[in-house]
Design a protein around this nucleic acid. Structure first.
Lengths: 153, 153
DNA sequence: CTACATTCAGCAAATTTTTCTGTTTTGACT
DNA sequence: AGTCAAAACAGAAAAATTTGCTGAATGTAG
């Protein structure tokens, strides 16, 4: 049983589309007045349904960074080893996303580095220094064909 | 030669951190007055440096969706076949991200489906129907350890 | 039926957005 | 260096939004 009514869901959908939409516009589209929308947005923020707001920046226009998806296979699958790896790897600045997954590999990392040298330094100087890292397989992103960060809810 | 000066970069960094930051606060942090900040934000939007603003929603709290990273290997690597695949696959609603990559595989897709049945339907009813799709390898996301959509610029 | 809690619309003050004006700075060219 | 034009800037003011408050409507439990 979800605590979210249609108005809550509508707010989440619309703010995913445009995080800078005004409360007045939200109210108009959801057929409510401004104050209940205002209270609900505050509630969604404070209760963790909205984790933040971000501008989507065109990385290729704004920098020379390179993106890589990197798969990690551990050579120790104990809970301690996995937790220790997670705890450390998410602290690296180049690691933008980290998922624990099913299948042959254990983790998928999205790595963003300033350039190829930076990426090399990260792999050899930081990632491979972590304990119990077995095989590492890198897929460099040649082109981003779609990136839509909104979720259907 | 970049057309972005330190103020532009500062705006991009701060709006990635918090897309709802007011122009007044941006101005305070970047030691400018409000009007040049206002003009620059408009410029960054109109020239495509800012592609949009989005609220980051906690998917697990707000729905039962499942996330998968799926790798695609094509069995025809001609430019026509690759382009045709790209053009079609990005239209699917479940495909949230699509990258063309180096290595054994050709594409990485981030798939978000309402549930396991929806995911199955997508794989067998939509994805595998596209021409020239060779091997498909799926990694289901068991837990999201980090997801930071900001870029260091 | 009454008391209580929740949600809401409407209002008003505080704040922000947006436009405008005139000044300063920058950069290119003599 | 000196001059000019273009760009960037600060400040002010009007328009719009945010934010807090009040009381009415609705639903619920006693």
């Amino acid at each position: 049983m979800s605590k979210l009514d249609p108005t809550h869901l509508g707010i989440l959908r619309l703010l995913q589309e445009d995080a800078r939409m005004t409360h007045k516009e939200l109210a108009r589209r959801l057929r409510k007045s401004v104050s209940p929308i205002f209270e609900r947005v505050k509630w969604l923020e404070q209760n963790g349904y909205i984790k933040g707001y971000t501008a989507l920046v065109d990385l290729q226009k704004s920098s020379n960074s390179i993106i890589s998806y990197t798969h990690i296979q551990m050579n120790d699958h104990s809970e301690e080893a996995l937790s220790a790896f997670q705890r450390e790897v998410v602290l690296f600045d180049d690691v933008r996303e980290c998922y624990y997954i099913t299948g042959n590999f254990d983790f998928i990392l999205k790595i963003v580095s300033p350039d190829m040298k930076g990426y090399n330094d990260f792999l050899r100087g930081q990632l491979s220094k972590l304990p119990n890292v077995g095989s590492v397989q890198s897929f460099l992103v040649l082109s981003e064909e779609k990136r839509d960060t909104t979720y259907k809810i």
